[in-house]
Structures are given as structure tokens and as C-alpha cells.
């Protein structure tokens, strides 16, 4: 009986004491598993990136890195949880850009881009414009000319309002000054089905999906052609200036201790170098895209400014 009471007391003491002990162990970070929050449901593109990255981080840091999926609200719920987490390096986020640079311009979010310590940019996949199977257009210029003569007649699909493909297409429309109606879908599955059935005229997709669905792409929005699709012309070589990609990286709540931050930044650089990581990404039509802390912060700020202007125009 006495033993069992001791047991209870020990349990209680353990439970109560634990939150206060977290700070003591910082000297040799990491001493326990690091949780990686992915703000999208399991199985999606971000989740696959997150799990591939977590595997590498776990190897390099020498500790477990369980992935927690916090879905909902187009990524804002999970992103808010990362912003709110204790800045001790034991919670990091694998975040694609949209919840950071798009969503805050569409509604109030309980975080801003100031609430994060930017560890690195890690992955990206270029975006490509795919056409319906019976489309009469063979290049980007034809399409733009037709749309200019028939404003509002063509439709384009995207995986959702405020998604990176949506913003990329709006940026392109702004550059060319033509009008194409936006028809958002709930994710790529329904959107690509509608494209293949000819219910919409074109679809802005992440490059990884173009190959996967064998879509009929007309342009990839990059500076140079990609190895995986050497015949697909870029927007630049077709005489336009818009480039766009779906990208993301490793972010943590603002205020990490310096040595933790350095450890994570070094680890991230190693992950980007890892051949195994690059191979895994390549299978999904994505690529490593390493930028250090300052670089990714600048890219987030720039993206937020540009997309903020587009959204202010589109949403009205």
C-alpha cells in the first residue's frame, strides 16, 4: 500500500515537474525527440517532404523526429501551433510557403511572418500550366493571344483559393494583362479530373503532378528547363517573365537559443546535401532548394509583399 502511494506521488511529481525541466537540458541539444509539425494532413505533398526531411534530420541530429500532422484551415492551424510552441528547438515546422505568405493576406491569422525563426529553405517544385486534352493551343503565346481577344471566356483551375498555383497564375495574368476566369477546386485530385474531362480549359499544377497524371503541359514557370522533362519549354524562353514554384522549408518559433539555432541550421544544410533526400524528392518531381536562414527570410518577405498585392486585387 505504501509503495503504491509512493508510486502515485512520483507520478504526480514527474508530471508537474517536467515542464520546468525543459530549460535545464539545453546545453547539449538535442537530448530528447524533436517534434516536426506538418501543417497539412498525412499523405499530401507537404507531408511527404516533411517525412523525408525528418528521416534525415533524425539521422544527423541523432535523435528521433516524429512527424505530427496538424491539418485544417489551409495550413494556418498547424502554422499557428508552430508559432505558439515553446522556442526550445524541440518543436520545429516543415512549412510550405502558402500559409506564411498568402493566408495572412486573406484573413486574420494569429501569427505573422515575424513570429518565426527561419532555419532554411529546403525543397521546391516548379509550377507548370497544363491544358485540357482537346485544347487547340500549342504554346503559351497562342493561349495568351486568344485570351486577349476573348476576355473572360477561358477558365483555369487551381487546387484552391490562396494556394501557390492560384497566386502564380494571377501573377502571370497580371504580367500579360489578360483575363481568364479562376475556378478553384479542393485539391489536385478533383481539379485534374475536371481538366482531363475538359470541364476547364487549363490547370496550374505543381510540376510533380504533371508527370504523375501525364498531363499535357504547355509551359513550366522556371528560368531553365528541368531535367525530368527536357521537352517542356519554360515561360522565360517563350518570352514571358513570370516564374513560380511551390516551395517550403524548416521554420521554428521565434526566439530559439543561439546554439540550438546553429545546430538546426547546420543539420538543414546537411539534409539538403544528402543524396538519399534528393532521390526521395526526385521521385515526387521535387528538388532540393537550399537557402540559408537570411536567404529564406528575405524570400518569405518578398513573397509576402508580392502576393499581398495580388490578393488585395483578386479578393475585391
Amino acid at each position: 500500500m505504501k509503495n503504491s502511494r509512493n508510486f502515485t506521488r512520483a507520478t504526480l511529481a514527474a508530471t508537474l515537474a517536467l515542464p520546468f525541466m525543459a530549460g535545464a537540458a539545453l546545453a547539449d541539444y538535442p537530448t530528447r525527440p524533436v517534434t516536426a509539425i506538418v501543417p497539412f494532413p498525412a499523405g499530401g505533398s507537404t507531408d511527404l517532404m516533411g517525412r523525408a526531411a525528418a528521416q534525415e534530420f533524425a539521422r544527423i541530429l541523432g535523435t528521433d523526429m516524429p512527424v505530427t500532422n496538424v491539418g485544417g484551415g489551409a495550413g494556418t492551424v498547424g502554422t499557428a501551433q508552430i508559432a505558439r510552441a515553446r522556442a526550445d528547438g524541440y518543436t520545429i515546422g516543415v512549412i510550405p510557403a502558402a500559409p506564411l505568405i498568402n493566408q495572412p493576406h486573406m484573413r486574420e491569422t494569429p501569427y505573422s511572418i515575424e513570429d518565426f525563426d527561419y532555419i532554411c529553405k529546403l525543397f521546391h517544385s516548379p509550377q507548370a500550366l497544363a491544358l485540357a486534352p482537346d485544347s487547340p493551343f500549342s504554346d503559351l503565346a497562342e493561349l495568351v493571344d486568344y485570351a486577349r481577344e476573348n476576355p473572360g471566356e477561358l477558365t483555369y483551375g487551381s487546387p484552391g483559393p490562396g494556394s501557390l498555383p492560384h497566386l502564380a497564375m494571377e501573377l502571370f495574368l497580371e504580367e500579360t494583362g489578360v483575363q481568364i476566369e479562376h475556378v478553384p477546386f479542393q485539391g489536385d485530385g478533383p481539379g485534374v479530373t475536371a481538366l482531363m474531362g475538359g470541364h476547364i480549359d487549363m490547370y496550374m499544377a505543381i510540376f510533380s503532378n504533371v508527370g504523375q497524371y501525364e498531363l499535357d503541359a504547355v509551359a513550366i514557370f522556371t528560368d531553365e528547363r528541368v531535367e525530368a522533362a527536357p521537352d517542356l519549354p519554360t515561360s522565360i524562353e517563350q518570352g514571358f517573365t513570370t516564374t513560380a514554384s511551390w516551395w517550403g522549408g524548416i521554420f521554428a518559433p521565434a526566439g530559439l537559443p543561439d546554439e540550438v539555432r546553429t545546430t538546426l541550421e547546420d543539420a538543414c544544410a546537411q539534409v539538403a546535401e544528402s543524396a538519399h533526400f534528393q532521390e526521395t524528392l526526385a521521385r515526387f518531381g521535387s528538388f532540393t532548394a537550399y537557402l540559408d536562414s537570411a536567404g529564406v527570410r528575405a524570400e518569405v518577405e518578398e513573397g509576402s509583399r508580392v502576393n499581398g498585392e495580388i490578393l488585395a486585387r483578386v479578393l475585391d
Binding site: F7, A10, T11, A13, A14, A17, L18, P66
Partner: peptide, 20 residues
């Protein structure tokens, strides 16, 4: 399931008992 429930875990409780 590899989804850690919130709060203190059994591993910490056990360590606490052993350590205490």
C-alpha cells in the same frame, strides 16, 4: 501509431520513478 499523446509520457514517468 507513432502519435505521442500530449503531456508527460510513460517513458518519463518510468525514468522519474527509477531516478527518484
Amino acid at each position: 501509431f507513432q502519435i505521442r499523446p500530449p503531456g508527460t509520457g510513460m517513458d518519463e514517468v518510468l525514468r522519474m520513478i527509477a531516478g527518484g
